[in-house]
Computed example of a mutant assay.
Amino acid sequence: MNATIIALLGYITWTVLLLVALAIYRTNLVMKRKKAANSFKADGSDSPPFGHRLTRAQANCVESFAFIGGLMLLALATDSSVITNGLAYILLLARLGQSIIHLLSTSIFAVQVRFAFFVVQIAICLYWIVQLATKFIV
């Protein structure tokens, strides 16, 4: 069992689930005639509060994939997943935590908790960068 593969699959699955939830949410608004199908702003700023949070949570996953998914894919492609395996599940849990808190609340405490989950992800990615650079550059 390769933790990096499972965490990467989990990350991608979570991103797709958020996208499906967003599609269902927006379809519901259109079906109830609360919004026109062609009137949604990409950032969700014109949606009700939950819709805006859902849009941003999904977008955050996509935006972070460049470095999170990129590092996991780099590790897998270079047979270096031993570097990422140890923290892969923690990173996935931090990603899930950040998204779930984002969906639930925008209170000051929730934003601080969400930021803490983000910091965990960044710290893990920085650690992986150093480890991978050490392996291949030094």
Results as ranks from 00 to 15, higher is better:
R56S: 02
V130A: 08
M31L: 13
A116R: 11
L74I: 08
K32F: 01
M1R: 12
A133G: 13
V16C: 12
D43Y: 02
A23R: 15
G51F: 09
V16I: 15
P49G: 08
N28D: 15
Q58N: 11
L93V: 14
A110K: 02
W128I: 10
S39T: 08
Q112A: 14
V120H: 03
T13F: 15
F117H: 05
F67P: 12
T4R: 03
I100H: 11
A57E: 10
F40R: 02
L104M: 13
F118E: 00
I90W: 13
Q112K: 07
V82Q: 15
Q131C: 14
L103T: 07
L91E: 04
L87F: 06
R53C: 02
R53Q: 03
A57F: 06
F109Q: 08
G10W: 11
S107D: 10
F50R: 14
V82L: 14
L73I: 15
H102N: 08
L91I: 11
L18P: 01
L9Q: 13
I24R: 07
G70M: 06
L73W: 03
F136Q: 08
V82W: 15
A66W: 15
A123N: 00
A21S: 07
M72D: 01
S39M: 02
G70W: 09
A110N: 04
K32D: 00
L18C: 11
Y89E: 06
N38Q: 15
A133P: 00
T78E: 05
F109R: 12
F109I: 12
L76P: 10
K41R: 14
A21G: 01
A133R: 02
N85E: 02
A110Y: 01
A88I: 02
S45D: 09
W14E: 05
A66E: 12
V62N: 09
D46G: 12
G44F: 03
D79I: 03
N60K: 02
L8I: 04
F117A: 12
L132K: 10
V111P: 11
N85K: 02
I122Y: 06
A7R: 04
T4S: 06
I101F: 07
K41T: 15
L29Y: 00
I12R: 02
A116D: 00
R26A: 07
L71A: 03
G51K: 02
V82S: 15
F136M: 09
I122P: 00
G44H: 05
F117T: 07
L103S: 09
I90Y: 12
M72I: 11
Y25H: 15
L9F: 14
L22C: 10
H52W: 05
L71S: 03
S39Y: 00
G97T: 08
L9M: 12
N60E: 11
M31Y: 05
L19S: 14
L92N: 03
N60R: 06
A7M: 07
G86H: 01
N28R: 14
T55C: 07
V30T: 13
I83G: 00
H102C: 09
K135Y: 07
T55E: 03
G44C: 08
Q112M: 09
I124K: 11
G10V: 09
V30Y: 10
M31I: 08
A77C: 11
A88W: 05
I108Q: 09
M31A: 12
R56F: 01
A75V: 08
Q98C: 10
L103Y: 10
A75F: 07
T55P: 03
A110H: 04
A36D: 06
Q131R: 09
L73R: 13
I129F: 04
T27E: 09
